[in-house]
Simulated scan of single mutants.
Amino acid sequence: MSVMPDNSLASAQWGSTPNPRLAGARPQVPAADQTLRILSLLARQPGPIAARTIATQLGVPRSSVYHLLATLEEHGFVVHLPAERRWGLGTAAFELAGGYTRQQPLAHLGRTLIAALADRAGESAHLAVMTGRDVLYLVEERAPRRPALVTDVGVRLPAHLTASGRSMLAALPREQVRALYPDAASFADRTGRGPARPGELRDLLREVRGRGYALEDGEVTLGLASVGVAVLDHIGWPIAAIAVTYPTDSARDAGTLAAHLAPVASELGRRIGGARR
């Protein structure tokens, strides 16, 4: 007759399963544990890293790392950059991040800030997050006597065409952008304007980084332009973006509008535990 260990006996008595970490035991599903550790490691990096780096940092055999990465790549959670022999997060990981963002109080925390921004700027303002190659709008505040926009709550638009999306793409590692937009087939079009090739997007994002904010003019809706600024987390990763949209013929100065956006992005980042801009 075998004797049940004390922690198992307690588990049986109280109807709970002991945490293997707390009990000092090995994970009951090593592959799942290693997979989650790989994703967590990639999420903490400023850019894609080599498989051998993953194996070394996690203490996992390199052969196992390659098998797990291949499975993650098949499901879109990681991407392989053959030229650099590195691995980074894929679009499915962005989907998870967007799902978390939608379920946590980002929209609630940002709503009053976006409303105040629309009042100060006198233009419609919105808050969006990245999800794959799209932006998803979480909050919109329409300014008085301004036209209705396509950026309503729950709407998705191609990130490379929007000021919100461009501000977030400009804050991503260049390798990550290249993985999201590997060729011309990756670029959607709405009005015949905007980047249509990886090189054009690369040049545009270089301008965004140099300027400190993103612009779009007629690429989402003809006759309307937008200015966007990214909200960054504690390691500089873009977790959201805020933007204002205005009629092209209103002669608004983009730099002045961006000056309204910057402190709002900083405050929202502070509220959700990110870094100040």
Rank of each mutant, 00 (worst) to 15 (best):
S2M: 11
Q13L: 15
R26H: 10
P27M: 11
A31Y: 01
D33H: 15
T35L: 11
V60N: 00
R62F: 00
Y66D: 13
F77M: 04
V79F: 00
H80P: 00
R85M: 07
R86E: 14
R86V: 07
W87V: 10
G88R: 08
L89Y: 09
Y100P: 05
L109G: 04
R111Q: 15
E123L: 12
E123T: 07
E123M: 12
A128F: 08
M130F: 10
D134P: 00
Y137W: 13
E140M: 15
R142G: 13
A148V: 12
V150D: 09
T151G: 09
T151E: 12
D152W: 06
V153A: 10
V153T: 13
G154Y: 11
H160A: 10
L172I: 08
E175S: 15
E175H: 14
V177I: 14
A179W: 00
P182S: 08
D183L: 03
A184K: 03
A185W: 00
A185V: 02
S186P: 01
S186G: 04
A188S: 14
D189N: 13
D189V: 13
G194Q: 05
G194D: 01
R197M: 04
G199I: 01
D203Y: 01
E207K: 06
R209Y: 00
A214L: 03
L222S: 09
L224Y: 05
A225Y: 01
S226L: 08
L232D: 07
D233I: 09
V244N: 11
T245L: 04
P247T: 12
A251Q: 15
H260G: 03
L261A: 11
A262Y: 04
V264P: 02
A265C: 03
E267G: 05
E267H: 09
E267D: 15
R270E: 15
R271D: 09
G274D: 09
A275T: 14
R276S: 09
